[in-house]
Design a protein around this nucleic acid. Sequence first.
DNA 1: ATTTTATGTCAGCCTTGTTGACATATCTCA
DNA 2: TGAGATATGTCAACAAGGCTGACATAAAAT
Lengths: 173, 173
Amino acid sequence: MVPDALPALKSHHSGKDILAETPAYDLIELFFFAYRDFVSDPDRILDEYGFGRAHHRVLHFVSRNPGLTIAELLDILRITKQSLNRVLKELIEKDFIESRMGTADRRQRLLFATPQGGELALKLAKLQTRRIMRALSGMEPEAKDAVSRYLLSLIDPDSSAHVKHLVFGSEET
Amino acid sequence: MVPDALPALKSHHSGKDILAETPAYDLIELFFFAYRDFVSDPDRILDEYGFGRAHHRVLHFVSRNPGLTIAELLDILRITKQSLNRVLKELIEKDFIESRMGTADRRQRLLFATPQGGELALKLAKLQTRRIMRALSGMEPEAKDAVSRYLLSLIDPDSSAHVKHLVFGSEET
DNA sequence: ATTTTATGTCAGCCTTGTTGACATATCTCA
DNA sequence: TGAGATATGTCAACAAGGCTGACATAAAAT
């Protein structure tokens, strides 16, 4: 077994970069548990609507980015159009998302959350925000920025610019 | 349903009017993208072995906690015994995990990673550690601790003590 | 001796991902 | 204008990994 007495705590005293080889078990496992609980809040509510996590993701990004196209959504979610279409169809049928023909390019479908859809998206976002705020409370103000930068840096460098634009892109506080 | 304020309105530091929280869209979305990429590294390797994420989780926690029982593993993963058994059976058949009868309680099955299993678990942990280290590099030394505390606080308070014990062994807050 | 506990297993269902093939409308460009 | 590229939709089949319910067995606990 690997020495695991101290969680990814490193002091450089050994010659080689054994550091890069000592697994950061703490951050790996905390990430797993945190994510598990983080998505569990919405799950309970989505159930009442007959929706799942896939619906949540679609609704969230459409709600946050009105006029999003299918192609852009596929790029965000990294799933196939068939997978997307299955849940998107349900969201449209149940009137949580509206699909309008593109104006510049009429092949495109521009997606918008309906009032009902926007409300649900907001409700779920607030639920998750409550958990986030509880976690941040009691931490220094700089902590939030540190966490934000950490998460951003975890993302594939290829995607990080895209994500940065998507998340911090153009709007409100 | 509560009529919520439109997304733009919020205050700076006015007392305790936190009920109309402004969604923390940035942390919500960054968490999604970061987790997506974080688990994608192992996926590629697991594929070569004919394993999936479910196998990874089982192998990881067994490898990290030699002698883990079925019940404890179920408690960590929060899945049903049927779901667990499906992947566990494959891990045992392919000789990545060994199941021994309990000594104190002979009804129990104590799980251990085989040499081959421990090797794979370590390989995957190192992969994820590389990503973590890349993210932490360039951040202040306190950042790691902030991230760690943030993730821990995201976890359900009910589970956090258990997780703390599991991850850090047994100490600190 | 009976009941409870820890585990295993069969059978079937659901969600959400996949691939491949094909259809249609629209845009672009030579 | 006509050929091809592009954006989307759809059908069919399959896989992974969740789920429930029912039932079986060995061992511990009472």
